[in-house]
């Protein structure tokens, strides 16, 4: 029995070194050497070298002249992640969605509610979803056209440019990258 206890402790430490230290160090070293961009978090830098976001992490857009992402109870603060975990029967969920629909009517008078897809008015699982559905982006075009004066055709082209297809054409769903779309929109507005 004593040999099992001592053997367990020693083997535990050896395996901790192998799986906890060596394995992690090897992956970190190789990843940093051959895939440095992904390894550090696919960060996006501006021309001055400042970090403006990550290709994978959504950003909070509340002003009406931007394309908006999905609802995030954590307001896209990437220090954490998550949702309020509403159940389908929770009255707070119903109230929040009703409020979103009312806000939509106020801010997008030209677009009827039946063209508003559910992803725009539901909380993503991570609270950091970088994408919205193509229909969700297109439904916002009339609002952005009237606020920025950029013609609708140009905005539609922009949305198409930043629509990511299904991976390998088969897997997942197509989505529009909101941060990249807004970065491009900002350039257009500045011109």
């Amino acid at each position: 029995m004593k040999s099992i206890v001592m053997g367990s402790l020693r083997l535990g430490l050896v395996l901790m070194a192998l799986c906890g230290v060596l394995y992690n160090a090897a992956v970190t070293g190789i990843a940093g050497a051959i895939l440095p961009k992904q390894a550090e978090g696919s960060l996006i830098y501006d021309t001055k070298g400042r970090i403006v976001g990550s290709e994978l992490i959504g950003q909070n857009f509340t002003d009406p002249q931007w394309f908006h992402g999905r609802i995030s109870s954590i307001e896209y603060n990437g220090a954490g992640s998550g949702t309020p975990n509403y159940s389908p029967s929770n009255p707070d969920l119903l109230a929040r969605v009703q409020q979103s629909i009312q806000d939509w009517r106020t801010n997008n008078p030209e677009v009827p509610v039946d063209r508003l897809p559910l992803d725009l008015i539901t909380n993503s699982g991570s609270g950091l979803d970088p994408q919205i559905s193509p229909a969700g982006a297109k439904a916002q075009i009339p609002r952005i056209r009237s606020l920025t004066g950029i013609p609708a055709e140009q905005l539609e082209k922009l949305v198409e440019e930043f629509t990511l297809p299904r991976q390998l054409g088969i897997f997942g769903e197509p989505g529009v990258h909101v941060l990249k779309l807004n970065l491009a929109l900002q350039k257009l507005v500045q011109q």
């Binding site: 949702t83 509403y86 039946d114 992803d119 993503s124 699982g125 979803d129 994408q131 559905s133 997942g172």
Partner: peptide, 14 residues
């Protein structure tokens, strides 16, 4: 609203 996507609360677009 357009509910063709199915239930999206708590799910990711991609």
């Amino acid at each position: 609203a357009d509910s063709g996507q199915g239930s999206m609360e708590g799910k990711e677009t991609r």
